[in-house]
Design a protein around this nucleic acid. Structure first.
Length: 473
RNA sequence: GGCGGCGUAGCCAAGUGGCUAAGGCACGGGCCUGCAAAGCCCUGAUCCCCGGUUCGAGUCCGGGCGCCGCCUCCA
């Protein structure tokens, strides 16, 4: 059996994975900032961490998965300037920050559930861990890493030599071309806020007292503070979108390693690549976003997006398109039908015959979560004519634990609830049925052609003909 | 300007120097049901271009061309 290997962003190579503590794995995943509806690019990150978790569970590990909810302190700019996204969203909607956070957190959880993600063991909110964040900042202050300027309390990155390690940044080279706005008083361009002071005369929706003054925590602080509470001072795996590596994760590392005196704080940094819309990435700022609810509105099964996700490797940019999601929906539907049919199989399988397929599937995932290769094995089993039905059933059940495609569960037979009725059309259909009964195919086909011309699709079943408007589906 | 990545059949995509370059979807054939739908079977690639290394390269090196990302909010 091949060892489990994952690609680690920090060391820039794929290497053997072994948990810090035998048998148990802690995963920390950067979750959503709940000021807007998440799009399917965000969902790719969620699916990625879920695939990771499911695979580790299938390998017999006890997994503790933590996903944070950012509901405070995420500013519009990483230069620690601009508005707080939560505050801005709340103001726009005329609601409280808490209401906004609750609303979008609920949507986010619904999306995750719809694509069959396992719930995380912990799903902490930044605003409910202010004390922990202040404690962490105090630790850093005691060690001399912080300094205070009128704007807030900052982390002096020059005191942390490994600062650029994670993202492989060339700080000197960056400074030249950077368009980062400069906050008055910062000692280094890369210094970041640990605590921001509430502006004079401005009443924020979210602000707290701290040893340094009234204000709110810097965005990066929450991950360091909450991860240590739920996972301890070292983490096996930290996941997130690739965009988070240069700033957010780099700053997390600085805080955590300095506060806890550990290195490496995170054993494996795993970052997923972006989902592209056509040639360009999907991003809120450019507006080319699609949400899961958009897909559902178009009649697409949310699990089709999961299937789509599994068809590409998580470290490759994946191209989303109408064609691609339709193709995934079709593939999923066929796979579900096959699996459901196999559930009818009786008898017991033969472990020895199944073993090679299990090994191929498992080894693909053990190789840095190569889901596309695993999917090829799934299809090999699904359409295999040398294995017995019981073996195919057993294998698909086993794969399902990692895939999460709801294989083998009862499928609603072919859109059963979408068939329509209409007096006029039903009348025509009745005429056609009469013609068919009389074997008058010419008349029967003429009627069907007329209906098809009206954009109506007819499907004959043992229970009679049913119909629906094409594209309504 | 600095850094990183990608270009594989119509589309989404695997591919860890070496038998006939995975898999899914679509297209086109065929089987099967009166027809249609569903299902099943079959079918498709000089791996962006040019050099080089090697017995052998989609895979390594160099040079082009095209595209994407990060250094600005973003998963």
């Amino acid at each position: 059996m091949k060892p489990i290997e994952f690609y680690d962003t920090r060391t820039r190579r794929q290497r053997r994975f072994e948990p810090l503590e035998p048998g148990r794995v802690g995963i920390y995943s950067c979750g959503p900032t709940v000021y807007a509806e998440q799009h399917i690019g965000n969902l790719r990150s969620r699916l990625f961490s879920d695939l990771l978790k499911r695979f580790l569970l299938s390998e017999g590990f006890e997994v503790t998965h933590v996903i944070n909810i950012t509901d405070v302190g995420h500013l519009v700019s990483d230069a620690d300037e601009g508005e707080d996204k939560m505050e801005a969203a709340a103001r726009r909607a005329g609601r409280s920050a808490l209401e906004i956070a609750d609303h979008y957190t609920r949507l986010w959880r619904e999306d995750a559930a719809a694509v069959n993600c396992l719930p995380p063991e912990h799903n902490p909110r930044a605003s409910e861990h202010i004390r922990e964040q202040i404690e962490l900042a105090k630790k850093l202050e005691a060690k001399g890493y912080l300094y205070t300027i009128p704007d807030g309390v900052y982390f002096d990155t020059s005191r942390f030599p490994r600062y650029a390690e994670l993202a492989g940044l060339d700080l000197a080279g960056q400074a030249e071309g950077a368009r980062i706005g400069v906050t008055e008083g910062k000692r280094n361009p890369s210094d970041f806020a640990v605590w921001k002071f509430a502006e004079e005369g401005v009443r924020r929706l979210q602000e707290w007292d701290s040893p340094w003054g009234r204000g709110f925590p810097g965005w990066h602080l929450e991950c360091s503070a909450m991860s240590v509470r739920y996972l301890g001072e070292r983490i096996d795996i930290h996941t997130g979108g690739i965009d988070l590596a240069p700033v957010h994760h780099t700053n997390e590392v600085a805080q955590s390693e300095c506060a806890f005196d550990v290195h490496p704080w995170v054993d494996f940094w795993m970052h997923n690549e972006f989902l592209n819309m056509g040639a360009e990435k999907m991003s809120k700022s450019t507006g080319n976003v699609t949400t899961l609810s958009d897909l559902v509105r178009r009649g697409i099964d949310p699990l089709a997006f999961r299937y789509f996700f599994l068809q590409a490797h998580y470290r490759q940019q994946q191209v989303f398109s109408e064609k691609a999601i339709q193709s995934a929906a079709k593939g999923l539907q066929r796979l579900q039908k096959i699996a459901a049919a196999l559930e009818e199989a009786t008898g017991e399988g033969d472990e020895a015959l199944q073993a090679p397929f299990r090994a191929r599937f498992r080894d693909a995932l053990a190789d840095d979560l190569n889901a596309p290769r695993a999917m090829a094995v799934v299809w090999d089993v699904a359409r295999n004519d040398t294995l017995g039905e019981a073996d195919r059933r057993d294998l698909l059940r086993r794969f399902e634990a990692v895939l999460g495609l709801k294989l083998g569960e009862a499928v609603v037979e072919d859109d059963g609830d979408r068939w329509e009725t209409d007096p006029g059309i039903d009348g025509l259909l009745a005429e056609r049925q009469a013609a068919r009964a009389a074997k008058d195919w010419a008349t029967a086909d003429r009627i069907r052609d007329e209906l098809v011309a009206m954009g109506i699709e007819i499907v004959d079943t043992p229970e009679g003909a049913r119909w629906r408007r094409k594209g309504a589906g």
